[in-house]
Nucleic acid binder design. Sequence first.
DNA 1: AGGCACTTCTGTGTATACACTTGAGCCATG
DNA 2: CATGGCTCAAGTGTATACACAGAAGTGCCT
Lengths: 215, 215
Amino acid sequence: MKASDKVYESLRADIVEWKLAPGTVLGEVEQSERLGVSRTPVREALSRLVADGLAIQQRGRGTVVSEVSEDHVEDLFVLRVALECASARAAANSPKNGSFAQLAQRFERSAHEISVPGTREQYYQLVQLLDDSIDEAANNSYLSNALRTLRVHLQRVRRLAKDNPDRLKASAGEHAAIARAIASGNPEVAAAATTVHLHQSLTHIMTHAVGSERQ
Amino acid sequence: MKASDKVYESLRADIVEWKLAPGTVLGEVEQSERLGVSRTPVREALSRLVADGLAIQQRGRGTVVSEVSEDHVEDLFVLRVALECASARAAANSPKNGSFAQLAQRFERSAHEISVPGTREQYYQLVQLLDDSIDEAANNSYLSNALRTLRVHLQRVRRLAKDNPDRLKASAGEHAAIARAIASGNPEVAAAATTVHLHQSLTHIMTHAVGSERQ
DNA sequence: AGGCACTTCTGTGTATACACTTGAGCCATG
DNA sequence: CATGGCTCAAGTGTATACACAGAAGTGCCT
């Protein structure tokens, strides 16, 4: 793996995990010394971060980690609803949507087990599996690319709100509804279920977020 | 302006104008000599092109201009419908949608003048003005970013189909409908008008495209 | 004569040196 | 005392040199 890739992965992970807080200045020399590589791969990594929207280049001061505000979260979810609904529609229209019935069952089962300790990480993996399955069934590289960069931002926002068991249980049910709609090949229901889920998710973030963020 | 920016703009323009055909290998040394700069800014420009999806990095052979096929066009329009509908909805909900009534009038007027020679360039500028106005009214940076990269690809695809006066006249009417819906503050109508326009646009491309592309 | 291996060459990945822009601090002047 | 200009420093932008990997061509062996 290239050094620039390692730098990019490292910085991106640190940003989405809030180890590098918004407003942090990412100096090229500073980061190259910290990560033990020269400035060139650091520059390339910073360019990619700027392209992703995780950092912005300020004149003279260098690149700084971009801010995350409540307004941004709402804007982010407008885009998310648009993209994930389109993706769900495409997946429901796809001929290879056979695995979604099983996914729906797994979500329904996990809705009952969600209160058991240690199952949370497992649940997040299940969510990612559904996302990946929708992506694959939708089979649209442009959509996938847009969703990929969107999800990077979502990872960062997710840290704003603490998940609680009740929300996770409801979330599992909503995901099951999405999977069922796709399995039955009904694009409108799939899009509607996605809209419902994302609306609930945004509401939860906006009511459980502000004030107590920033670990 | 930075040298890397100039290189990026130059290469992007050449790609969307089909001066650099899909499959063309963009060697770092070759481009640095052609454009009179060192490899470093060329590398940065190529990275940005890859991030935009206009080029892909192949093992050993370097970066090549990405392909454009019919399937890609359909996929592109799935994403376009999702993004532009979301944008139109947001613009219709925005309080500062005052300029759209005037824009609608200008589109209705241009529908009559479209057959006059020399007005085509003027019409395209009007379309861009509408796009920019929607962007500004929607006031969503995530949406704007996604649309910006999308439109780069659209510029390239547009060269696949030749516009004719009839299509442009119909297009002007559809754009007027979008502007009117936004001006009246009706998000659902705005989204529907956008969907109609994009469907017609895609149909036109798919029927007037294949075989006679590649200048 | 064909296939495999070795060598060479082209091109990318990384490091480093140098120039230029910009920002901040200090001094001088109004 | 405040404001404007100058100087110095820090950091980015660009160029170039070097190292390494992959591909192609050629020669040798079977």
